[in-house]
Simulated scan of single mutants.
Amino acid sequence: MRTRDPQALDNESVYAKRSHGHGGLSFLTTLAFLLSLLSLGVSGFLAYRFLNLQQAFSAVDTALNRNPAKTSPNVEPLPGQAPTQTAPPTQSSGETASQAGQLNQPAINQKAQVEIIAVNRIQNPNTKLRDFVNIQFRVRRLAPKTDALSYEQGVIYPGSTTARNPTTGETYPAVDRINRATSNISVSELNPNATADAYVWIQIPEGTSAIDILIPKTQAFKNVPISG
Rank of each mutant, 00 (worst) to 15 (best):
G41A: 14
Q219D: 11
G24E: 08
L40M: 15
Q153D: 00
F45W: 04
V155T: 12
T30W: 13
P192I: 05
H22R: 15
A56D: 11
A143E: 04
S26K: 15
V175Q: 13
P83L: 12
D147M: 02
V114I: 14
A198M: 11
A220P: 00
I211L: 09
P88E: 14
N109C: 01
D131C: 03
L35N: 12
T167D: 06
Y48G: 09
S36R: 03
L28R: 13
V14M: 11
A210V: 04
L51I: 12
W201D: 00
N191R: 12
V155G: 00
G21L: 04
I213W: 01
E170Y: 02
S58F: 07
V187N: 06
L142S: 00
P166G: 02
A47C: 11
R140D: 08
Q102L: 13
A198P: 02
G23L: 11
L9G: 10
T218Y: 00
N193C: 03
L46A: 08
R49C: 05
V14Y: 12
H22K: 15
L37M: 15
A59R: 02
S209A: 10
G24M: 14
S72P: 01
R2E: 12
R49S: 02
E189S: 10
Q113E: 07
L64E: 05
N165P: 02
F132D: 00
R180H: 12
G154R: 04
A163T: 10
I215K: 00
I202V: 14
Y172S: 08
N179F: 06
E152Q: 15
S13K: 12
R18L: 03
Y15P: 00
R180Q: 07
Q105H: 06
V200Y: 08
D197Y: 00
T218K: 03
H22S: 14
A163W: 01
M1Y: 13
V187Q: 01
P125G: 09
A82V: 04
L53M: 08
R2C: 10
T167I: 06
K145R: 09
R2G: 13
A143N: 07
L103W: 01
A59E: 10
I122C: 08
E95Q: 14
K217S: 02
P205M: 06
A194H: 15
F57M: 09
Y157E: 03
F50V: 10
V200C: 10
W201M: 08
T127L: 12
L51T: 14
T167H: 02
T208S: 03
S39P: 05
A198W: 01
N184W: 04
Q203L: 04
A87V: 05
L142D: 00
G169Q: 13
N191D: 15
E206A: 14
Y199W: 11
P144M: 01
A87L: 07
Y151D: 11
Q99I: 08
N74P: 01
L40S: 15
V175R: 06
R177Q: 15
Q113C: 00
T171P: 02
P166K: 01
R177A: 14
Q219N: 12
I135S: 09
I185K: 05
S186L: 10
D131M: 07
P83V: 10
I185C: 02
R2Q: 13
S183P: 04
N165S: 02
L28H: 09
I204Y: 10
H22D: 15
A16V: 14
E206K: 06
G21N: 12
E12Y: 05
L214S: 05
F33H: 12
A97P: 02
K145I: 06
